[in-house]
Structures are given as C-alpha cells and as structure tokens.
C-alpha cells in the first residue's frame, strides 16, 4: 500500500450519457474516486457496468454520441473537463496513457512496430532521428521484447498476442506518463502470458512511480495487482476500499456475489455460486438500488430509494441498505444459511 496522499487523478460526480434515437441514456451515474501516485486502483464489475467508458471519458475519447454531462476530472489538480482537443492531445501519452483489451486489434496492421512507437515519441518531443531510434529500442527492451532491433521492422501480425500487448505497453510508456489506464489488458491473453503482463505492469508502476487505473472483471487479477478496488454496478460505484477490506470483508451483496462466483484458492471446496439474473440494461429504469432485483437480501426499502453511502472505516465505503441496520456482515457460510432461510 502506498501511503502518499498525492492525488494524481480525481474523478468527481462524473455522469456520462449516450444519445440515441430513443433519447439519452445514462451509462455512468455520479461516480467519484481518486488515484494516487504509485497506486493501483482496480475497477471491477460485470459487462456493461460502465468501466470502459469511465476510462475513455478520462482520455476524452468517448465516441461522438457520448458526453460527460456532469462532474469534473482533475489531473494533478487541474480540471480537464473543459480542455480543448488540442490541449487534450498534449495530455495523452505525455501525462496519461491507455492500453486496451485486445492487442490483436489495438495496433495498426499496416504500420511497423517501430513506426508506431516512433510516431508516439515524436508527437510530443523533437528528438533527433537517432535519439528516437535509441528510445524505441530502450522501450522495447524495457517491456521485455527480445531482439528489439529486428522487431521494429516487423508488422503487428508477425507478433504473438503477448508480444503485441508488450508493444502496446511500450507505446504507452513512450513519453513517461504519470498515469497508466488499462482496460482489461490481459483478458484476451492466455493465463501464463496474462501473469507475465501483470508482473510487467506492476514492475513498471514501481519503477516509474506511476498511478495505475486498471479495469478488469477478473477477481484473481484484482488480488494480484490492486491496492484499492472500486466495484461498479449499473454505472455506479457500489463499494470501494482497500483490496484487503473488500476481498476479505465485502459489504455489498454484489461484491460478495462476484467473489463467490470465482474459485478461491484458500477454500477449494467452496461451491461456486454465480450471481442470478443478468446485469441491467441502460434502458431499464430500476427504482431504488439497481441491484435489488438480483439481490438475495433485498428488503422493501431497496426498491424505493437508492442507498446512501455507508462508511465501514476510513477507506471502505458501501452503498447498501443492509448497512443501515448494521446487522448484515459478510460471512460465506452464514450467507448460505441466510439464503436457505429466506
């Protein structure tokens, strides 16, 4: 855990809406969080919960029909909400870099690896040809690509998925960004490659003291890299806290559900329990807590009013009415009992 309180990124009351023929739909609704220097924050949640568009909105890369309708995004104390595209260009890669889910499609197929890195460096600096070339080699070496001198002449299709993701990371690091944003960068890779890439990201984070904002829906990835977790459901953050707090002592039934739906090495005999039902669609207008139709602990008030934020301890917050009474606390065996007795 990093104790430095230096806020790198602060997202405040962010709302994102998409306009469509049916009118606007709110994809992200009022989320607030911080990322500090040297800290890895993981956003977890099911498909469609708004993870990717939260990241894209930070980069101002939302598609044309998407818009930030409320809130602010501060980077190093400066509000980025009203930056022009030109000003944003200076921030991209120089201050904040992003890597994407599918390395197979994230690199341009018709340009060499060398070109794609060189271009990134030259976007932001006036390095000489020779210095740029050296920097490209340095970056490829940094991300663990063997024989970089040969690689720079190759095209993406000549590289494996893992190698391509390393190239993407090299591109992301080209201009020494202070914040790295990663949208499920390992989902498309097989397990061994996955952990290599995670290790690489962790190493680089420590080496350059970067903040990392990492989206995943894989709880085992979270355990491996996160300092803090944000659990998203239906466009809202429903629980947040340090990895220890949230993984060991989840307070939101949705978080509990996520944890129970993946195997736990410490308790191999625990039965897997998928969350029943499916995530809400943006068009569903669910009153109260979005999760209540799928929640096995749902109470009357859950369908009436959205739960307020309850503070478990200084860093651990949850939006769930179960905290109001203070009765409910996560316990796997107990939850089974509760479930049966309902």
């Amino acid at each position: 855990m990093q104790n430095s309180n230096e806020n790198l990124l602060r997202v405040e009351e962010l709302k994102i809406e998409f306009s469509s023929s049916k009118g606007p739909t709110r994809a992200v609704n009022d989320i607030t969080f911080n990322v500090s220097k040297g800290e890895t924050v993981c956003i977890v949640g099911e498909s469609g919960s708004g993870k990717s568009i939260t990241l894209l909105s930070i980069m101002k890369l939302l598609s044309k029909n998407g818009e930030i309708t409320n809130g602010n995004i501060h980077f190093q104390g400066n509000n980025m909400r009203n930056l022009s595209n030109k000003q944003m260009r200076k921030i991209r890669n120089q201050e904040i870099s992003m890597i994407f889910q599918d390395p197979m499609t994230a690199l341009n197929p018709v340009f060499t690896i060398g070109y794609q890195i060189t271009e990134t460096i030259l976007n932001h600096s006036g390095l000489s040809k020779k210095a740029t070339h050296e920097r490209v080699i340095e970056l490829l070496t940094l991300v663990g690509i063997p024989a970089p001198k040969q690689r720079i002449k190759q095209y993406p299709h000549e590289l494996s998925g893992g190698m391509r993701q390393r190239v993407m990371i090299a591109i992301a690091l080209s201009n020494n960004p202070k914040l790295l944003i990663a949208d499920e960068p390992t989902t498309a890779l097989d397990v061994t490659i996955q952990s290599q890439i995670l290790d690489l990201i962790q190493d680089l984070k420590e080496k350059f003291n970067m903040g990392v904002l990492f989206v995943t829906h894989d709880m085992s990835v979270v355990t491996e890299i996160a300092d803090r977790i944000l659990v998203m459901y239906g466009g809202k953050i429903v629980e947040e806290g340090t990895v220890e707090d949230v993984m060991v002592n989840p307070k939101h039934p949705y978080t509990e559900g996520l944890l129970n739906s993946v195997p736990d090495i410490n308790r191999p005999d625990r039965p897997l329990e998928p969350i029943p039902g499916s995530p809400p669609s943006l068009d569903d207008d669910i009153p109260g807590c979005h999760f209540h139709p799928r929640c096995k602990y749902a109470m009357e008030e859950c369908s009436i009013e959205y739960p307020s934020t309850f503070t478990i301890d200084s860093d651990h917050h949850v939006n769930c009415w179960l905290q109001k009474t203070g009765e409910w606390s996560h316990h796997v065996s107990e939850s089974e009992v509760l479930y049966d007795s309902q």
Binding site: L61, R89, K90, R92, Q94, A106, L107, V110, F111
Partner: peptide, 29 residues
C-alpha cells in the same frame, strides 16, 4: 471505429493524421 484508431488518438496523434494516415491506408485496401 476500429481499436487502432482509438490507440492512435490515445497516443496524441493529430486528427488529420489519424484520418489521412492511420485510417486511409487501411480503408484503401
């Protein structure tokens, strides 16, 4: 709409270059 265009933008490439270099070359195939 493809991912590598998003990558190009995230790298800070100018819009005109995104269109005329990154997109056009692929669209020409």
């Amino acid at each position: 709409g493809s991912d590598y265009i998003k990558t190009a933008r995230s790298k800070g490439v100018r819009e005109i270059k995104v269109y005329m270099v990154h997109a056009l070359r692929n669209a020409m195939i």
